[in-house]
């Protein structure tokens, strides 16, 4: 299993725009997991994250006529999720538990800063995904296996350690290594897209 299933069936844009239920079903199935996954990185509450992700799909449905390319669909979903997450975090700040917890406030600000630095409109998502895939292939094998098990198969560090017969520490450092290499690889490819800070 990888980030994108390579033989993914692309829905037909015209039928999607017309409101074809089947086309939309495909889009939902292909993207739901990663949009929820994305939201979860900023909103740890699973129910909230799912709710926000679902809102993004409803938004896509209501605005389907504005989407001009198939690849634009993913960018639209991420943008909608970003906006919804930002709104949520802005309100979260006023909740009373935030008033006394400086770490929570710091985290809230940090997450907002990160979200704001995403510019999905500027890229064809498909292209970005291909690049991430390419960068993944450049990782040392052990490193890539650990990273993929952790990120795409949702396995816990403990499970990966047992499965591969290595120490938990080594799982952690392989993930660290993977993400540092990815950062370097992707920074060279996409200087003005992902890294616009």
């Amino acid at each position: 299993m990888s980030l994108a299933d390579s033989n993914m069936v692309l829905p037909d844009l015209t039928s999607f725009k017309k409101g074809d239920e089947h086309a939309f079903k495909i889009i939902f199935e292909d993207n739901y997991d990663r949009i929820v996954g994305f939201c979860l990185q900023f909103i740890p509450d699973r129910e909230e994250a799912k709710n926000i992700a679902q809102q993004s799909f409803v938004k896509l449905w209501l605005n389907r006529e504005e989407v001009n390319t198939i690849n634009g669909i993913c960018a639209f979903l991420y943008t909608a999720a970003k906006t919804e997450c930002l709104n949520f975090l802005r309100h979260e700040k006023y909740k009373s538990e935030y008033q006394k917890n400086t770490l929570k406030i710091k985290e809230n600000l940090l997450n907002r800063q990160i979200l704001e630095s995403f510019h999905f409109n500027k890229l064809e998502y498909q292209e970005l995904e291909g690049m991430i895939q390419l960068a993944l292939e450049k990782l040392p094998e052990r490193c890539r296996i650990v990273f993929e098990k952790s990120r795409f198969e949702g396995k816990k560090n403990r499970e990966i350690a047992d499965e591969l017969g290595i120490a938990i520490k080594s799982v952690e450092s392989n993930i660290t290594r993977a993400i540092k290499i990815l950062r370097k690889e992707l920074r060279d490819i996409l200087p003005f897209v992902l890294w616009m800070l």
Binding site: F28, Y32, G37, S117, I179, L194
Partner: peptide
């Protein structure tokens, strides 16, 4: 860290164990 977290968020997948489908949330069309 912002760069790391961005990669992290973009490579993140959630396991849809409940099997939520579009028909559960779609507005009436």
């Amino acid at each position: 860290f912002i760069e790391l977290k961005k990669i992290w968020a973009l490579t993140s997948k959630f396991e849809n164990k409940e099997g939520v489908s579009w028909s559960d949330i779609q507005p009436e069309f």
